[in-house]
Amino acid sequence: MERIPILQMGEFLLVTIQVDMHDRLAMALQDDLTNRISKTSARGVLIDISSLEIVDSFIGRILGTIATMSQILDAQTVVVGMQPAVAITLVELGLSLPKIRTALNVEKGMELLRASVGRRSKESGNGRAKR
């Protein structure tokens, strides 16, 4: 079965969604990401959806679930590059995804991840950062 590739960049995982996802592909991504986070002890996940032409409530829910699951596994999720038309439609649909962190593009998303991971390392007494 077709799968969406997950790239590892240091302590972060990077996913770029470039196809119109059918439901099973989205479910598979959710499983794969959860496994990879736990296997690699990643601190952050960046999902680039700039090529996605629509996000309906199903894909929205998958994104939300990924964010919550990664949180439990001690990783931050940032969704980047949502198109204006997609954002307006999601809000009209009634789905404002309050739990998901967002950024304009991959670069800004990376900055956000680094900043939040750095801050949390300090809070937890330099636990993992110094490792």
Binding site: M82, T102, A103, L104
Partner: peptide, 12 residues
């Protein structure tokens, strides 16, 4: 509020 929510979804 909708404008704010849409901007936030884009990361602003």
């Amino acid at each position: 509020l909708k404008t704010v929510a849409a901007a936030r979804l884009m990361g602003t």
